[in-house]
Amino acid sequence: MKIVVTGSLGNISKPLATELIEKGHQVTVVSSTQERKAAIEALGATAAIGTMEDTDFLTQTFTGADVLYVMETLAGNAFFDHNVDVIEATTQIGRNYKEAIERSGVKKVVHLSSIGADTGPGLLRFHYNVENILRELPADVFIKFMRPVGFYYVMYQFIPMIKQQGAIYSSDGGDRKTPWVSPLDIAAVIAEEIEKPFEGRPIRYIASDEISPNDIARIFGEAIGKPDLQWIQISDEQMMDGLITAGMKPETAEGYVAMNVGVRDGSLYDDFYKHKPVLGKVKLIDFAKDFAAAYNQNQ
């Protein structure tokens, strides 16, 4: 099949493209960075260089594809750019995808959404928005909505906190387990869904492990040689102040804290547990090795 993969050579898109190519599919990888072209071609894929803001580029790239894998992403510093409305900017990418899908005539789409897309709390609002925008497409466009839980690699943000403050601080905490996911397991599920028949607009949740904040601190502490590492729960107000002090736009920080409220009280996972998936292969203890390697860099 001819498959278009958005997301450049990111944590999900690179292993996804690699697996699809190994299975004999013709893969085009979309990237906004010309410097990625050689690396994309080295995988055996075709590089399409352009932006998710350019609907003409997207339409041209999508045309002729059998299946699209689409995801929304912003520049790495977007959460700290005070000129960016993160929710609106990402929602606009969803509008661009909708237009390009209609114009290109593609009928099979796999969309990377998220836990929380059913209610859209805090920063997750854009996932709610984009899912509903894509649902406005004609009924003969089949869409599989993938809803992964929190990504392991988000926890890399704990590294400077541990080094500077000696602990993990967050407005959630304790012994209640919550689900997390490896990008490798997400890629594997998406590759599976691309090859399965398309019909309607199903939703599939993706998770790798269920583990509590206290256990995360214990596992990371053992991995980095700090067995007494603790996860310390702070108030929403303290969390907000810390994010703003770190340079995050206040409105973005407010959305982040609102999302964490759903993590803390469990409401974020209500629909997940109604449709709980089989957990993937990559457990947190596996990711802890990568976390430790990153932690020990430049020691």
Rank of each mutant, 00 (worst) to 15 (best):
Asn129Arg: 03
Pro277Val: 07
Val106Tyr: 08
Asn296Lys: 05
Met146Gln: 02
Gly221Ile: 03
Ala38Val: 12
Val263Asn: 10
Thr61His: 12
Trp180Leu: 12
Glu193Phe: 13
Glu251Ala: 15
Ala117Thr: 00
Lys289Thr: 15
Tyr128Pro: 15
Ala117His: 04
Gly7Met: 09
Tyr69Ser: 06
Tyr156Gln: 07
Lys2Thr: 07
Gly255Thr: 03
Ala288Asn: 01
Ile206Tyr: 01
Lys144Asp: 04
Gly262Gln: 02
Ala292Asp: 02
Tyr69His: 01
Arg95Trp: 12
Ala100Val: 03
Arg176Phe: 14
Asp209Val: 08
Phe79Lys: 09
Asp215Lys: 14
Asp271Tyr: 09
Asp265Trp: 12
Ala89Asn: 05
Leu9Ala: 04
Met240Trp: 05
Ala117Leu: 00
Thr252Ser: 14
Leu229Val: 03
Tyr273Ile: 01
Asp185Gln: 13
Ala45His: 03
Ala294His: 14
Ile216Asp: 08
Val67Glu: 06
Leu137Asn: 00
Lys283Asp: 12
Lys2Ser: 05
Val30Leu: 15
Glu254Thr: 13
Ser31Met: 04
Gly94Tyr: 15
Gly242Ile: 02
Ala39Met: 04
Gln299Thr: 06
Ile194Lys: 03
Glu53Arg: 15
Gly7His: 11
Pro160Lys: 04
Arg218Ile: 09
Phe291Ala: 01
Lys144Ser: 10
Gly200Arg: 05
Asp172Lys: 00
Ala17Arg: 09
Pro227Glu: 04
Glu35Ile: 01
Gly50Pro: 05
Pro250Ile: 02
Asp265Lys: 06
Glu199Val: 08
Asn298Glu: 10
Tyr69Met: 01
Gly174Met: 05
Pro148Leu: 14
Lys144Gly: 09
Gly105Arg: 07
Val67Asp: 07
Asp271His: 08
Met1Lys: 11
Glu53Ile: 04
